[in-house]
């Protein structure tokens, strides 16, 4: 048997398990959910073709500001806030952690550590930290004479945007902001990437800036930041894709039903409940496909605009 033939057979055999997984666990479900999105299907009987009525239902929901529309709004709020904050905190914290300072390794480890805390434990912990009555965060706020916020387990006033920007008690933040805080706390993996990128910036660029008398702030603005734009772009794209898919933390802090008053009902959660509580697979599949198209378009738009601001 020739080497070439041997290589072909080996290649097909060795990728075999993954190809089987691709066909059964990815491509078949991908096609099936597209088919189901045009059907009525409750898991018990057979899928029954209903044409575009699931999509029409989504359009109606969106035009009347129904549950799906609110879930879209919640998801967009969570995604935009957590991605923006992750860039802001990621870049600035990594810059701070790049200084020569005693105990740097320890500080880097401490900032990274929350990233390895299991989501279930993190959710339990943050529900306690952000408890409106007894939580540490609100205690700290009131000690500083700032208004306590509603956070998790709050009343329906936490249902942004009904009470936005502030209600009578000076409450600005609600449950969604609690979720954003949680996600920013677990930013460790990004920090590692930013730290590596900052370490890769050529020293000569800083030295040239110093000769020109640049202040540390100007060095950051004109040297560090432009050199970080490829990583920031990566952060934004992956952050968007991941925050739209966030499920476990949302499910846990919302008691599995978007509490309080639907404030944490994201598309992920609404879709999950529609599929497995209401057994409305057709409608859930239509939602999934709409979400997929929205995310794909957002990603495409990010790539298109990236030429303008990402350093090559």
């Amino acid at each position: 048997m020739s080497l070439k033939r041997q290589e072909l057979i080996a290649g097909l055999t060795m990728t075999g398990p993954w190809v089987l997984g691709l066909l059964t666990l990815t491509l078949y479900p991908f096609a099936a959910s597209l088919w189901w999105s045009f059907c009525e299907y409750d898991l018990l009987g057979q899928p029954r073709w209903v044409g575009g009525s699931n999509y029409a239902r989504l359009a109606r929901d969106i035009s009347t500001g129904g549950q799906f529309w609110q879930a879209l709004g919640n998801t967009a709020y969570y995604a935009v806030a957590s991605v923006l904050l992750s860039v802001l905190v990621g870049v600035s914290l990594a810059t701070l952690l790049s200084q020569t300072i005693r105990g740097r390794t320890l500080m880097r480890t401490l900032c990274f550590l929350p990233a390895v805390v299991p989501t279930v434990a993190a959710a339990v912990l943050w529900m306690w930290l952000l408890d409106p009555q007894a939580g540490l965060v609100n205690k700290a706020l009131t000690t500083l004479e700032l208004p306590a916020q509603n956070w998790f387990r709050g009343t329906s006033a936490a249902a942004w945007p009904t009470s936005w920007p502030t209600d009578a008690g000076g409450r600005v933040f609600g449950s969604k902001d609690g979720l954003v805080l949680m996600s920013v706390w677990g930013i460790g993996n990004l920090l590692v990437i930013y730290l590596a990128a900052i370490g890769d910036v050529p020293r000569a660029l800083y030295e040239a800036a110093e000769i020109d008398g640049a202040s540390p702030w100007r060095k950051f603005l004109h040297v560090t930041l432009p050199m970080l734009t490829p990583v920031i772009f990566f952060n934004v794209v992956m952050g968007l894709i991941q925050s739209v898919q966030a499920f476990t933390d949302v499910y846990l802090v919302s008691d599995g039903q978007g509490d309080p008053a639907g404030a944490t009902m994201t598309v992920s959660l609404y879709l999950f409940l529609t599929a497995f509580k209401d057994l409305d697979m057709g409608y859930a599949s239509a939602m999934a496909w709409l979400l997929f198209v929205i995310v794909a378009m957002a990603t495409w738009w990010l790539f298109r605009t990236s030429r303008k601001w990402v350093h090559q």
Partner: peptide, 9 residues
Amino acid sequence: LPWQVTMAP
């Protein structure tokens, strides 16, 4: 590919 798309099937 988001998990939502393949979840049910």
